[in-house]
């Protein structure tokens, strides 16, 4: 390996390492300093700083862009946990700005309005780690091929409905399981079928998992939702609208953190699910027109 490749590989390991540190935790969307404080006090392992949570982006319409760096900086100054921020799909200039701001993770996110309908950012060129969304294995492996250090299944952001998160997690897990049953001679055809890099297909066939941590996002609104996706294989969770669109953000945030840790202990899940105020109302998927669905963004 030459020196340059060595350095890139090194950077990638460090960035996947940070993703490892976030495992077993809850990452929460916050739009201001007060919410960031509530998230940190509730036990969030990181926050995602953004101007509007997905439910409001969905309601308001218009173009959703990277947040004001000043607002992100204010949140960085408030909390000690890692701060993530979103850039538009393909918008590498926004990513350059977020890197200069020294956010700890960039989410190249379908929640914002895409800037490029063909290409994603070439993430290996950056020092800062990236997380990207995926609805299936091919999409996940393309993003990792571009340099993403963490994946999250997309779900449907801002819906308060877990059904898409479950669909995407099951899709991904089923496709990975299938690969482990195939012969080596079948893997190139699989790479072609999924539109995925061959070496990453081989990795999944050998290990039965992605080479980076895989978290779940999009629609988690209750402690039980968090426990469900964790039991389906999510290594940590992102909660967006579910917390600050509920009637009791602090209590709900703490309950979701506890459910994420004790995801396979029904006695704890019962305790933390009891006595919460009403959660966000949420949307039935049939209420969201196809063209307004966020999960289909990404190529």
């Amino acid at each position: 390996m030459n020196n340059l490749t060595d350095k890139k590989q090194n950077k990638f390991s460090i960035n996947v390492g940070l993703a490892e540190m976030l495992k077993g935790g809850a990452i929460m969307d916050v739009t201001n300093v007060e919410q960031a404080k509530i998230a940190e006090d509730a036990g969030a392992c990181a926050v995602m700083a953004l101007e509007r949570i997905p439910a409001d982006i969905r309601r308001d319409g218009g173009v959703a862009r990277m947040s004001d760096p000043e607002m992100i900086q204010a949140i960085k100054d408030t909390v000690s946990i890692p701060v993530m921020a979103k850039c538009r799909i393909g918008h590498f200039a926004e990513a350059q700005i977020l890197q200069a701001l020294e956010v700890d993770f960039i989410d190249e996110s379908e929640v914002l309005t895409p800037a490029d309908e063909t290409n994603h950012i070439f993430k290996s060129d950056f020092k800062v780690p990236f997380v990207c969304g995926a609805t299936n294995l091919g999409e996940a492996l393309r993003r990792i091929g571009e340099g993403a250090a963490m994946m999250r299944t997309k779900g449907e952001a801002g819906s308060g409905n877990i059904v898409e998160a479950v669909r995407h997690m099951r899709n991904l897990q089923d496709e990975m399981k299938r690969l482990t049953t195939l012969g080596k001679e079948q893997l190139m055809a699989v790479a072609k079928e999924h539109g995925a890099p061959f070496d990453l297909v081989c990795y999944v066939a050998e290990h039965g998992k992605l080479p980076v941590p895989n978290f779940s996002a999009g629609g988690i609104a209750t402690p039980a939702d968090a426990a469900l996706v964790r039991q389906l294989g999510a290594e940590a969770i992102f909660v967006g609208s579910g917390i600050f669109k509920s009637d009791d953000p602090a209590a709900r945030a703490a309950a979701i953190v506890k459910a994420t840790t004790h995801f396979d202990d029904p006695a704890v899940l019962l305790e933390v699910s009891s006595g919460l105020q009403p959660g966000m109302k949420g949307l039935e998927m049939s209420e969201i027109p196809e063209e307004e669905r966020l999960a289909v963004r990404g190529w």
């Binding site: 490892e20 495992k23 077993g24 940190e40 036990g43 000690s80 946990i81 953190v257 506890k258 840790t261």
Partner: peptide, 15 residues
């Protein structure tokens, strides 16, 4: 293990 120290400290208390 490694993780977020403020989170782990808080969760040690809460649990």
């Amino acid at each position: 293990p490694g993780g977020e120290s403020t989170t782990i400290s808080l969760l040690i208390q809460k649990n």
